[in-house]
Amino acid sequence: MNRFDYVRARTIAEAVAAATEPGAAYLAAGTNLLDLMKGGVTRPARLVDVTHLPDLDRIDRLPEGGFRVGALVRNSDLAYDTAFARAHPSVAEALLSGASAQLRNAATVAGNLMQRTRCPYFYDPASACNKRQPGAGCEAQGGETRLHAVLGWSEHCIATHPSDFCVPLVALDAAVEIAGKDGTREVPLEAFHRLPGDAPERETVLEAGELIVAVRLPAAAAAFSGHSRYLKIRDRTSYAFAVVSAAASLRLDQGRITEGRLALGGVALKPWRARAAEAVLYGAEPNEHIFRQAADAALAEAKPSGDNAFKIELARRLIVRTLTRAAAGTPERMPALPASAFEETLHA
């Protein structure tokens, strides 16, 4: 790990000012940043510690409905916040399927959004990677690509975004509150992460010094609470990144889907909102047939980026299963194995 200046910010303005310098990075829990620094993947010259900023660890109900979740709220605190989890069960389920209990106890909401990809070539400083070094090339292509992207990738980058949390969030129209030197702004989460295109080094829309201060869920998102699930396929029963994951939320009225939301994880460099699939669901009867159509729509543009064609078919099946689970209703209690294929009952 390189030497760096450590700056402990007392106010958001202080933090933003300190982090606007080139080479500065924000430090929250550090569960991803320190990992990257230890691997020599990133070498920031300055760490601006935001963990002592006041009031960013609060979960607030907004007057107009909805939630405002402070940037420093810990993943586990959000997942176990009774009111929040009741309103947004798929978000809680996604949180609890991510990482380990220890990491969830430390990792923050904003840090989760800012997670870097687990692409092994990104993590290996000896490999060429356009994210780490723009223009260097992408050595993942032609290499070990089992878990790489099948949607939205480019010849410059085929990595995926590793977050579970972001997947239901993007399905539920979450927005990101950002503070910068010119005040605050709000960005839909769907627009927060960037697809690689020809600049995979630009992962989010954040400008230099900008700080995530909160994530907002609109009041309308709670309307899905009775039919919201997250399902994550992984290579271990627990404590593994997603091979593919899906978040599905439905509003049902008199046997019809009045609105459906669908997002995928592990398939692209951003949490992938499947709007084409949502269009298929609109007004339809919730059944396997329509779920298959939705799945086909969601994956219509998918193409393998290497030895990962299986992920396309897997994602299709996963969508059907997740929608089926969502249609069956949110369980009363969080499953023993959240978001797992091995929860108590299979609604198939």
């Binding site: 687990r118 070539y121 290579d235 271990r236 029963t237 627990s238 404590y239």
Partner: peptide, 15 residues
């Protein structure tokens, strides 16, 4: 390419 315990998998308790 997976010289770590995050991606060189060994069983966890839930396995």
């Amino acid at each position: 390419m997976n010289p770590n315990l995050g991606e060189y998998h060994v069983p966890v308790n839930a396995d």
